[in-house]
Design a protein around this nucleic acid. Sequence first.
DNA 1: CTAAGTGCAAATCCTTTGCGCAATG
DNA 2: CATTGCGCAAAGGATTTGCACTTAG
Lengths: 150, 150
Amino acid sequence: MGRTSINVYKFQKEDYIMSDKRNTWQKKVIYSVIKELKTHPTVQSLIDELEKRGYKIGKSTVYRVLSDAVDEGIVMNVYSGDKMEHYDGNTEKHYHIRCKVCDRIYDSELPYQDSITRMGVETDSGFVILSHNLEFIGICPNCKDSLKSL
Amino acid sequence: MGRTSINVYKFQKEDYIMSDKRNTWQKKVIYSVIKELKTHPTVQSLIDELEKRGYKIGKSTVYRVLSDAVDEGIVMNVYSGDKMEHYDGNTEKHYHIRCKVCDRIYDSELPYQDSITRMGVETDSGFVILSHNLEFIGICPNCKDSLKSL
DNA sequence: CTAAGTGCAAATCCTTTGCGCAATG
DNA sequence: CATTGCGCAAAGGATTTGCACTTAG
């Protein structure tokens, strides 16, 4: 098994939504790391991060654990400019900023605005609007700097 | 070649951004149909639509034509809940509503709000914010009706 | 004519699945 | 010790690419 020396995510009562789920070290480590990272990783970049930390977890396990975690509301999917699935351990409603240049996703400082959902009233169409996603597009500090030096 | 009897997209000056691009009937038909559709189709559903109209165009051609059209700003990519690439022939800034139930994408009636981009000022981080994407999540009239009858 | 574009089939990349083995509760 | 979960390798599905053929200009 992987290193045992890091502080691993402690399972919460809420995590036991399905009665017959088992509490494996792989799941603990994945939960722990995804909750800690602010980088909205893909499965592959999460695996790289896990290996960097000394954990070897099979790719299909990572896919399965994350997919279940999404179903249970423990993590969120994020869609990005690339075609890969990204994951966000922060399930609070919040916004992202995508860097046009490097396609990395960052968290926005702007708090969630319920008022925006209300802007979406569709008078004619009979649509029910429940929520919204807002993504800012910009250039991140890193890329801004590298552009300057061209 | 395909049927010639429909009103086919007329190439605009702006479409000839790259000097050495050729004006094939396949490109004309694809442009024409994607500009007409409000359904934000995937490549496959566009091909189905084309065949319904009597046009047989190879899948890789459709992929290539759309991908070039995105690069040239003639059509836009749209990301949806499914993992497939959707295309939007309307390149004006506008918002979408995604139906939670069927994952179809509709156009929102809400006009583009420049003010929202301005909400995204990142004081600390040194980010430059250029624009935003806003997507409403809701239930479309179709799905609302089918849910009622359960 | 001659390069760009097309269409097929093969290749690629991300993701999902089947299945024998391991480990939880 | 019964069953869930893991990891591997194979399958799947969307998109991309190589290449011989077609066609626009």
